[in-house]
Design a protein around this nucleic acid. Sequence first.
DNA 1: CCGCTCATGTAACTGGTTACATGATTTA
DNA 2: TAAATCATGTAACCAGTTACATGAGCGG
Lengths: 176, 176
Amino acid sequence: MDRLSELEGTVLGIVWSDSPITRYAIRTRFLNSRSSHFSGSSGAVYPLVARLLASGLLSAEQSQQGKRPRTLYRLTQLGERSLRDWIVNVEGWMAAVEFDPIRARVFFLASLPKRSRRKFLREAGDRLDAEITETITHVKALTETKDTWAAWGARGALGVLRARRKWLREIEADES
Amino acid sequence: MDRLSELEGTVLGIVWSDSPITRYAIRTRFLNSRSSHFSGSSGAVYPLVARLLASGLLSAEQSQQGKRPRTLYRLTQLGERSLRDWIVNVEGWMAAVEFDPIRARVFFLASLPKRSRRKFLREAGDRLDAEITETITHVKALTETKDTWAAWGARGALGVLRARRKWLREIEADES
DNA sequence: CCGCTCATGTAACTGGTTACATGATTTA
DNA sequence: TAAATCATGTAACCAGTTACATGAGCGG
């Protein structure tokens, strides 16, 4: 295992926080996540977990007491060390500006007539507002649990959403 | 051409703003961009342009006056319409929270001893500061040109970077 | 004239996705 | 008892990347 991908590191983190855990449960973490970057498709998660297992970062255990048979995964010592390395190894690209489909479109807004431009800005703003509302709920829920770091994560997402919304408003103000 | 990918739409936008343009020049736009999301690799751009040409969104013209031979691309009417459609068709996922590698790591910061945690936050902050400095320069440069929308785009990126930085500071304050 | 930028092109790979298939257990 | 959820698994695909190769023209 030379270098963990972002998905691999994240899965390691999920196993660390929810261990012992099934692959299905790992998937649902992505499915329920506010970020749509990873789909949590079984086609991604299953082979990935197999890889981490083969590299000795995860250990598997069969559980069969009464319930349906399922495989539970845990971090090995090596896995824990790899997780910490993955987190701690900060590189320049991690601070890079991510791709924002709304921003990508703003660059070429001059190709639209003013009315379409306004409509675009309004609709994008509405979408962001909806996302912000949902994220606020999410932050509240996480703040009530004792998972401080998940709450910080959600707050980070909220901050970015609000920055995007504020920026859109500035453009709208400039347009009118 | 059923539905444009983000890269396809962006390339259409680049051709719209810099037409007539070579594929190489399209690539350098990505290479010099503040976002590292698309590499602008020839392996991506060349087949993509071929696709847009085959679908009639772009037209090609050979230029051979004295200089080295090169192919110049322009938007067709259909291409212009497709660009506008691509921009104007706002969907929910566009407002979704993007993947942030720093945030992804924050979720699992509890797995680190306090000292490593502090180090992580400091280093991530430094990376963001560097990115912010460069982006400010970028915004200034674009504000001086008359490309209002490119300047707005850059300001949007800056706003997001600052939101991420602010959020990290809040965590650091909470940690001390 | 040497190295850099401009310019074009492709083969191999990769890290995912979509879509499909199966079946046990739980809940309404 | 039907529908939803839990749980596992794979094949086909896809939109990119990395890496490589070539060569013309330009600036120091």
